[in-house]
Structure formats: structure tokens, C-alpha cells
Design a binder for these strands. Structure first.
Ligand SMILES: [Mn+2]
Ligand SMILES: [Mn+2]
Ligand SMILES: [Zn+2]
Ligand SMILES: [Zn+2]
Lengths: 150, 150
DNA sequence: CTTAAGTTGAAACCCAGTTGCAATAGATTA
DNA sequence: TAATCTATTGCAACTGGGTTTCAACTTAAG
């Protein structure tokens, strides 16, 4: 069952519309999936979720929409240490960047915001005269639980 | 022409041998390539270089050796923002971690060591009780030259 | 030298992501 | 509202980076 077009646009959607991009039914669906995701989703998961709202949607449209969102800086692409396969994960770009920690034993992903991280980016921009558009800090290791139960 | 086996072993090589791993001719060749690389190389580049020393070497052996080195923490795997294709790049793990900056316009890769980065990792280990095994900070943006000539 | 386990190359395979193209659907204009 | 123009879509074929399988071959130990 297609989404009603009366649906209130989310932030991603209004962001794209304000940039003069065509708002298609498929895009609206994919944006909704990304916007309401509770964890980091890969392209296949996004496709599956999107198909529950609009069964006709094709995976190529998911990939195209993800690149569009990436190009516009509205989502971030993550590797999450490529713990199984080479796929990438996506999340709405947050107001403030965060770090991703991937446990190499249990696979759990944790997030962490840090003032030190913000300062580090500031240092890079100043000392390297490098204008940062996107940044990704991912660490792999062992979480507290996995270290305990060992 | 195969490398003479009298060749003095590099750090990677002696590290692997000290861990009781079999030192084959192919591994020696690949280790030499990685060890003497002047830039970040992807698997295909490593294969090409290795074949110049030992033409019979197969790409599957390159991939297997790279995973071996990764598993032993002797090399780091980088995305470098996946600026063309989905390939990965490799470098010998340095004594001190560094940050990679990829210019989205000219493609240049710069490296940067920072005390703030070391402190940030310390903070993560302490405050998140997360034992870091590997860390990767990559930023994409615009280098000084590209910002000037625009 | 013999032996046993680890490693190799070749070929087939896998999977995430991309490309080409004709049909379709947004947005704009009249 | 209808015509128009152009961006977007779905499908199918394709690409590229990396992996699996397995028989033949090395390596290191004894
Ligand atoms: Mn990657
Ligand atoms: Mn996140
Ligand atoms: Zn864990
Ligand atoms: Zn540049």
C-alpha cells in the first residue's frame, strides 16, 4: 500500500525539496526508511524495508537515492570495520559527528560523541589547511562485556 | 628473477617469522612490496609490483597474504573515502597512528599525526571501556591548493 | 630423507554496486 | 487542465573486488 501523499515530510525530505530536487514516490519511501531507522542499515536492508511500503521499488533506485543523499551530505556512509562482507551502512547525518566502535567479538556497534573529536577536526582544518566535508572515525576492538566474559 | 634468499628480512618478515608462520617465497615478495611502498597501494597494485619480482604469483595469494597481515595487525586497511571504486588500500602499521585526509577534488592523500588523536583514543578506551585494536580516522574535503585555485 | 601440515595457483564463484536504455512520471508552462 | 520537457525509474546485463574449492606443491620438523 503506497504511502499517503499527505504524509508530513521529514527533515531529509524537506531538505531535498528545498534544493529543488524532484520528489518521487520512491524517494519519499526510501527517505522515510532511512529517517526512521533505529540502527545502521545496509543497502539491502533499506531495500527490504522500502519494499514493505512500496513493493515495486527496485534496488537500483535505492542505490541511486543513497548516492544522491550522500552527494548532498544528508547521510553518512560507514564501513563498520567490514565485519561481514564488504557492504556499507548508512545513517542520517547527525547534527554533531560521532565515533563508531565495533566489537570484533560480538559485533555490537556503539556510538560516542566527544569534544576531543570536535577539537581534533578543528586542529586538522587549521594546521593542515584542509577544509573537512565529511569525517569518519571507526574503531575496532573489544567491548566491556566481551572483555569480561573471556 | 626470484629474490635471493640471502636478502635481509624486513620488519614485517621477521615479525611474521617470530610468530611461527611459514615464510614462503611468495610471502617474502609481497611483504617486500608492502614494506617498500612509497604510497598507499591497493591489492591490484600490490599484485602488479609483486609480479615484477616473481611473475608466477597469483592475485589470490596477494589477498590471502593481506588478510594474514591484517589478522596479525601488521598492516592497516584504508578506504580513502572510496573515491574511485570500492577498493581498499594498505599500509604498514606505523608505530603511531595517523589520520588520512583525502581531497575530493584532486584526489591527493595527506597524513597527519596528532596528540589530540592519541588523547581521543585514550578517552574512548577509558570512558567507553572499549579496548581498541584498530582505529581509522579518514576525512574527505578540500586541500589548501584546491581551495586556492577555485 | 621422510613426513605431515600449511600454502599455492587455477578456475569457478559470489556479491555489492553500476551502467545502458526504453518507458514513465514530476514539474513547469500555457 | 493539458502539453511539454526533462529527470527518474525498472529491468537486465554487467563490473570489479574479493572469496571458495581443490589438487598439486612447499615448508619446516623430526
Ligand atoms: Mn569500505
Ligand atoms: Mn551512528
Ligand atoms: Zn562485544
Ligand atoms: Zn586537492
Amino acid at each position: 500500500m503506497p504511502l499517503p501523499q499527505t504524509e508530513a515530510p521529514g527533515r531529509l525530505q524537506s531538505e531535498l525539496m528545498s534544493r529543488g530536487l524532484r520528489m518521487t514516490h520512491q524517494r519519499r519511501t526510501i527517505l522515510t526508511v532511512v529517517e526512521t531507522a533505529k540502527q545502521h542499515l545496509d543497502a539491502a536492508q533499506i531495500l527490504r524495508q522500502a519494499r514493505r511500503l512500496d513493493p515495486g521499488i527496485d534496488r537500483v533506485t535505492v542505490y541511486r537515492t543513497l548516492s544522491l543523499l550522500k552527494r548532498h551530505g544528508l547521510i553518512d556512509e560507514l564501513d563498520l570495520m567490514h565485519m561481514q562482507g564488504e557492504k556499507h551502512f548508512y545513517e542520517r547525518r547527525p547534527q554533531r559527528d560521532h565515533i563508531h566502535m565495533a566489537c570484533l567479538r560480538c559485533g555490537k556497534i556503539a556510538e560516542f560523541e566527544s569534544d576531543l573529536f570536535d577539537r581534533l577536526k578543528g586542529q586538522i582544518q587549521r594546521e593542515c589547511r584542509f577544509h573537512i566535508v565529511v569525517s569518519r572515525l571507526e574503531v575496532g576492538g573489544y567491548c566491556a562485556e566481551c572483555r569480561a566474559s573471556n
